[in-house]
Nucleic acid binder design. Sequence first.
DNA 1: TATGAATGAGCCTTCATTCAT
DNA 2: GATGAATGAAGGCTCATTCAT
Lengths: 194, 194, 194, 194
Amino acid sequence: MREPDKHQQIIEAAVRIFARNGYYNSRVSDIAKEAGIASGTIYLYFKTKDDILVTLFREKMAEFVATVRKAIAAEPDAVAKLRRLIALHFEILEEHPEMAEVVQVELRQGQKFFRGASANEVSGYFNLISSVLEEGIAAGVFRNDLPIKTVRKVLFGAMDQMATSWVLGKRGYRLSDTADAVADIFLKGLAAKP
Amino acid sequence: MREPDKHQQIIEAAVRIFARNGYYNSRVSDIAKEAGIASGTIYLYFKTKDDILVTLFREKMAEFVATVRKAIAAEPDAVAKLRRLIALHFEILEEHPEMAEVVQVELRQGQKFFRGASANEVSGYFNLISSVLEEGIAAGVFRNDLPIKTVRKVLFGAMDQMATSWVLGKRGYRLSDTADAVADIFLKGLAAKP
Amino acid sequence: MREPDKHQQIIEAAVRIFARNGYYNSRVSDIAKEAGIASGTIYLYFKTKDDILVTLFREKMAEFVATVRKAIAAEPDAVAKLRRLIALHFEILEEHPEMAEVVQVELRQGQKFFRGASANEVSGYFNLISSVLEEGIAAGVFRNDLPIKTVRKVLFGAMDQMATSWVLGKRGYRLSDTADAVADIFLKGLAAKP
Amino acid sequence: MREPDKHQQIIEAAVRIFARNGYYNSRVSDIAKEAGIASGTIYLYFKTKDDILVTLFREKMAEFVATVRKAIAAEPDAVAKLRRLIALHFEILEEHPEMAEVVQVELRQGQKFFRGASANEVSGYFNLISSVLEEGIAAGVFRNDLPIKTVRKVLFGAMDQMATSWVLGKRGYRLSDTADAVADIFLKGLAAKP
DNA sequence: TATGAATGAGCCTTCATTCAT
DNA sequence: GATGAATGAAGGCTCATTCAT
């Protein structure tokens, strides 16, 4: 094995190719060309084309969750943690726009991800959000009647849609600039103060 | 010509088939079989396989928006309208679970929808949400510093993710039961009252 | 039978359509549209698409041969007959350019014509040419060592190629203007007089 | 890669298949089977089915013209060159009867050949004929009032029709045996000597 | 007779995967 | 391990033909 990192090379090439054309409109040979290897070589590292996507997602998601988890641990309280999580969610996607393209679009091939092989990694992120919420409730900074499972879905969906809009809008602005506004919506709600 | 509305027949069959397998894993002949017609007949009503998906989405989305628009018009104020919009969003998907499957999953084929032929229909829904927000701000029931474009994305994303989770969770509970909780999050925010 | 001449109507429409696109690139429904009838109606008059082409060719060829036969009968001698035959061959195609397109191109679908159902009509034309040659030899105006079967093929091929070039050249000149030159080549040969 | 020249292998297989059934009645898979390869392999060497036919014709025609050009260069005068050209035209087709079948029949799909991609190769042959005629006129052995463009079409058409008749007549005699008779018709004309 | 919607067999082409080198 | 030529199954789409009205 001359190239120690051919696995990674393929994953990175696949991200770019999938980002460009979507999974179903990408050919294995495109990935190979992008990675600078022969198409047969792909099959020494991945079982099928599907396997590339699932692996790609699993690895990237795990990395994503680990980064966020580590970053928010340093924050002093739940509110700060929530703000940091939202900001980081946007910053990471912003720094990896091709990854964002893939995740935001292909993520929704439900069967393949949430229901499938990557369920664990996705759950990891949901659990991370839950832990922040629970910490806030315990500390009395969040309402104690919050339905945590609903809130975390709502928050995730909100961030996800912000990212999707940004991706589909050809990334014509800085996504992370919207982080505070999003956080405010969640922390303060829409209603005017009485 | 026994069947009066073969166009609709095909759309409904396509919804079921796409919901079952996803667009790329569905064959035109599957749709034909589901619709009880010959595969060639499809091409008397639609130009390509793609055309089926786009038309399906456009028609269903237009219908969806029209229904919601009409329903919230009857509500007395912006808060009630927002609650009704969220509730109806969930109820409609709940009543049409196969449509929900398709929309939640295939919707994200960016190029095809948000960016593409269905952009108008999607915008229609976003605009509807905007109008409620604006009404609420004007009436002083919503904060007047709300960034409307962000709020509507966040709200849409929240509802969308609730629906996606419900779909991916095999619809093991009543989605519409969560409407109030979602509305509360937006109206009241997470923060505990001081 | 309201339309007594629907058979002819279809033939004429087919000539135009085949001339435009060639046989294999023409659809039966195109012919129907051109003829102003429904496509199903075609099958009340012709057994198959192939049958249209064969019938078309047979009828047109028979008509062609009859016209030429009658015209040359009026000529006084073999040389005049030969000149008239060549001129008429060109004039008829010139007056029916669409027919020319079809004949010059589709004629060569060997199996279907020379070898097939239309062999008799084609032979009729060859025989007509032979009779002129024989008359000329008998009258001593043509060389008596002429290999008649070869000459008639050569003459037919010459006229055919003149027509084909004219058709392929988009008919940018008058084909019949070349008749004398062609006749001269055959009557006088290429060789300079000693 | 066992076979060194798969391109040529496919061309030769296509010649046989097209000769047997004609272009439109031949399937790509037939060619593949005849060539002893998988049908997908065809597409590694040719862009489309059409491309096979066009390439086949272009290559064969170029080869044909080159052979004739070289052979007649060795002849001492225009008359000898003309006789050699006619003889060779027939001999080459006789040696490649399947190629003859294809050329004689498919050649006439006007749009594809004379008007299309192979126009250059066909022109090459016409120009070769022209050069012989011009040489003969310059040397005073051909009439100096010959309309060269007409003569070359007439000559080509004559040879072409001789070949077509031979092909359609199932090649029941030696085509090249007729070369002298054809040459005599052109050189001496039909008219009896006064 | 006439219609034209419906049929479904057929075919070109793509591309994930294999395997001899 | 690496290659990339070869494979061949699969599927979107066309269109000659049929048949209920």
